[in-house]
Nucleic acid binder design. Structure first.
Lengths: 344, 344
DNA sequence: TTGAAAGCGGTACCAG
DNA sequence: CTGGTACCGCTTTCAA
């Protein structure tokens, strides 16, 4: 391996000068600079990141932590982060957490010491404990998809999103609207499903509808689980005419359950998802779009900015807009609802 | 930041001893070891990765390079790699390449100097040039999904896979079988689509069928492009009764084209994909399954082994098995083919 | 403008 | 079994 010393010798200068040239520091005569650059090219010299990191006290690395690469939304956010970091001089160190035990170890471990200069947490809002440790580490942190007071964050208003979806169904004339979401999660403290549920409740309340508790079901995340939950809903004597789900993935499960029961969508059942993953368009799913890729990109940019200014900037909180994307899984209710009208 | 020196002072020993304890080196009395460990805990000491890297001459990092995180198959492989590296002491440094220019810079740059101790290339078989540079760097490399003579690799027999899919269709009685795949790619040198096409040709030849060149179409990767290509195929006067595609994603496009023309699948058209991504099951797509996650995991394990032994092991080449997964998009041909029979 | 030298925080060898 | 010390390769004063 050729070192900075080799370059210095070859160029006939001191190592300090070579260092200055490498780092574009001022105070080097252009003649000397030239000579050094020639030597660098001739030797094919590359500075050692490790030596640099040790000497400068920073790793030129950003730690990215995410749960479950099985979730399209997480992958899409990760893509955004990668893109946002692309032009920078930072390496991206990736860790995933799939269990609560991993969680703390990873989140903090990733940026301890000079391992990383900053961290991006995707869909992993830090617990109080983690926040404290993270703050102790002293590196800037950006949380994507998760509220925090402690760090900068990129979020969306999930409550508003839940309201958006529900209001869409209300406007179409639905009154019996169900919700399928994630079970409360102590392990990861994901809150988006709950928030979307809150928005759903708000919308129903504002419409003067008593939310039927039987129509709110939660279970493990995933298509299959959602299909099971939806099945129970659809087998109800007085089944809902519409379902709002906490994610597109779960909406797919609902569609599956409807299909297996011979129910027409949107004729017999309207379905609204959340996220607008690629699949949603493919399936013609009505959904609430959130800018997933964008959220990652913005997080990277924000962190880069934080890394730029000397002092830590106090909480930058970016909130990205949500939009309803009407497609082919929602329509006016018919059947039961219609039949009931004369009776009322 | 507390350093090894602080620990040494607190424990009343030399730094060498602390180092030995940290690294579990032999030759430390248990009494001393205890004292040191206590000091470490008391101080909350963590060794500096940068200093370690510089001193040991290795970064404890593995570089992972992949194209397009938009492709489910790539993400799935990446998941495998992450899982395989999980228990190890290595960090995972991720880079993606989306353009040919990025390609070389990334692939080689990632493991230059002490940046990484080894590299995993996902779906990016190195060019001769890249291989040369990579070899010059001297770190072990494992290529996932791509043939190489230069490095260890995890592959599948794509030719056999193409044959598998085609033979399945032949057995069902199809004679006019089309192929939809990726256009030849000079930029990334992906070969899997071409290999699968070769297998398709082999199978037809063995069945004594003259492959109709009009039935082989290629275009940019992706569902929409595939839908367009399939559209042309389906509008043919003598349209195929079955289509084999180079990926599930493309198969989805074919299904879309069929649906938009009111063709029944598998009644009017049989479709076979490749990969068996999650979506394939959801759509009931008949496909050739390849162990994507597994390929990543195996790559990580292989690299870890390579990193373990002092000498570089000469080419370890693992070939993973392919299996046909029959679902609901393939069946016996009817219509045109049947009608033609009396005429022949 | 430039060279020399003191770290950065470990590892590993060498005496003892 | 243990302490002392010379690196690892770079950055960054400090003098000149």
């Amino acid at each position: 391996m050729t070192t900075i010393r080799d370059v210095a010798v070859k160029a006939g200068v001191g190592v300090g000068t070579v260092s200055r040239v490498i780092n574009g520091a001022p105070g080097v005569s252009s003649r000397t600079r030239d000579r050094v650059e020639r030597a660098i090219d001739a030797l094919g010299y590359r500075p050692s990141p490790a030596a640099r990191a040790l000497s400068r006290g920073r790793a030129s690395t950003i730690a990215v932590t995410a749960p479950f690469l099985t979730r399209p939304s997480v992958v899409e956010r990760l893509r955004g982060v990668v893109a946002g970091l692309d032009a920078s001089e930072y390496d991206l160190s990736l860790a995933t957490v799939e269990t609560p035990e991993q969680r703390r170890r990873r989140i903090v471990g990733m940026c301890q010491r000079d391992r990383a200069d900053g961290a991006i947490l995707i869909s992993l809002p830090p617990t109080v404990d983690e926040a404290r440790m993270l703050r102790a580490v002293g590196v800037p942190v950006v949380v994507v998809d998760g509220a925090t007071d402690d760090f900068a964050s990129i979020t969306t208003d999930d409550v508003a999103g839940g309201r958006l979806a529900t209001e869409h169904l209300l406007e179409l004339g639905h009154r019996r609207i169900a919700f399928v979401g994630d079970e409360p999660d102590e392990r990861f403290a994901f809150t988006s499903s709950d928030d979307r549920l809150a928005g759903y409740r708000d919308a129903l309340r504002d419409a003067g509808i008593d939310a039927d508790p039987d129509l709110v079901v939660t279970g493990p995340h995933g298509r299959e689980a959602a299909a099971g939950l939806a099945g129970r809903l659809l087998d109800l004597a007085d089944r809902p005419t519409a379902v709002f789900t906490a994610s597109d993935t779960q909406a797919l499960g609902v569609l599956e359950a409807a299909r297996s029961r011979g129910l027409d969508v949107p004729g017999d059942l309207s379905v609204v998802g959340f996220d607008d993953i690629e699949l949603a368009e493919l399936m013609g799913l009505t959904t609430v779009r959130q800018p997933l890729f964008e959220s990652g990109r913005r997080a990277a940019e924000l962190l880069l900015r934080l890394l730029g200014r000397d002092a830590a900037a106090e909480g930058d909180h970016v909130e990205l807009a949500l939009t309803l994307v009407p497609r082919h899984t929602t329509g006016r209710p018919r059947g039961r609802t219609t039949r009931r009208r004369p009776a009322s």
